[in-house]
């Protein structure tokens, strides 16, 4: 397999260097480090420099555009996207606050997100409860069915619903928006819930039954407290997803305007660019909060009862 002899020697040196005895000697340690800096090492010790740079550059690529939006919300330039901004001002926040056309879409979005989240919470949790530990015929197909609404492009969900409304002559309404949103939110709740169901030890459920609790009491006093934070996290994420959704919504909303649709219209035909900037950062802040809460709710997992094996 190995063709070159020098490589063999280098490996031998590396292996020797990584044993505790060799690293304790003064000469061996720096040599090893220098070699690691050149190529990827086996995943122990310090990361190669090139990898660190690539990883940090990648993260910067992910974050700088969002930070830029914050800068633009304060620009005094109204007609173009000039960089750097000629001056900074706070006036656009006031202008946005007084714009009547921003508020109804915001409220519609909040309402749709709230209803969709509740529906997704119920349906997703039921699904997760059924599928967490059981094996049955068709289980694979069901899990495929659940992820399909997000695995297939949103335009398909949107176009399908649009076709169905067309075939069945259903007029567009808040309800038609919710139908679409709840469908793709189910999988978000499902994923969070099933992960928690699998972490909850089956023994505490058995213990509950042994102590005489019926299924509903076990749910109320044992399962629900353990599931709570996962469901809250799933709900938060579902809310953020629904609040932000635009592709499916454009097919199911008809003439109604959710906040993302309002933004899309402003993007296609800008009226007052700084107002869009302000709405954009409000949306960023509004979605970051539930995501951060969801993160703190699901991290670790030490709080789950019955973990010890």
């Amino acid at each position: 397999m190995r063709s070159d002899a020098p490589a063999l020697e280098r490996n031998a040196a590396e292996r020797a260097a990584s044993t505790p005895v060799a690293t304790s000697t003064v000469e061996a340690a720096p040599k090893r480090r220098r070699r690691d800096a050149n190529g990827a090492d086996a995943g122990t010790g310090r990361p190669p420099l090139a990898l660190t740079i690539a990883a940090i550059a990648g993260l910067a690529f992910l974050h700088l555009p969002i930070l830029l939006i914050f800068l633009y919300a304060f620009t005094t330039e109204e007609r173009t996207y000039q960089f750097p901004p000629p001056g900074l001002t706070l006036q656009w926040f006031e202008v946005t606050w007084n714009r009547a056309d921003v508020w109804p879409p915001l409220f519609l979005s909040l309402r749709v997100a709230a209803v969709s989240t509740v529906l997704a919470l119920v349906l997703g949790t039921l699904c997760a409860a059924a599928m967490a530990r059981t094996r049955f015929f068709g289980r694979e197909q069901i899990s495929l069915l659940i992820i399909l609404p997000i695995a297939l492009p949103g335009i398909i969900t949107g176009m399908s619903l649009r076709s169905a409304f067309h075939v069945m002559d259903i007029p567009f309404s808040t309800f038609t928006i919710v139908l679409g949103h709840a469908t793709f939110c189910i999988v978000i709740v499902f994923n969070n819930a099933i992960a928690r169901f699998r972490r909850i030890s089956v023994h505490i459920l058995e213990a509950s039954a042994d102590l005489g609790a019926n299924a509903f009491q076990t749910f109320r006093y044992v399962l629900a407290p353990n599931l709570g934070s996962a469901l809250l996290a799933g709900g938060m994420l579902a809310f953020a997803l629904s609040f932000d959704e635009v592709i499916v919504t454009t097919f199911t909303a008809g003439q109604q305007s959710t906040l993302p649709i309002w933004m899309l219209q402003e993007l296609v035909r800008p009226r007052q660019r700084p107002v869009t900037n302000v709405v954009a950062i409000v949306v960023v802040v509004l979605t970051f909060v539930p995501i951060l809460i969801a993160y703190y709710l699901t991290r670790g997992g030490e709080e789950t009862a019955g973990q010890g094996k």
């Binding site: 555009p65 960089f83 949306v283 960023v284 970051f288």
Partner: peptide, 28 residues
């Protein structure tokens, strides 16, 4: 983890909009 999750979950339209600002002729 947060560094990956926040951009993933932050608003799709806002992200697209940010790039409109970045790539504009007079942009950054």
């Amino acid at each position: 983890y947060l560094g990956i999750m926040l951009p993933l979950w932050s608003s799709y339209l806002v992200k697209v909009y940010a790039w409109k600002l970045i790539l504009a002729k007079e942009g950054i």
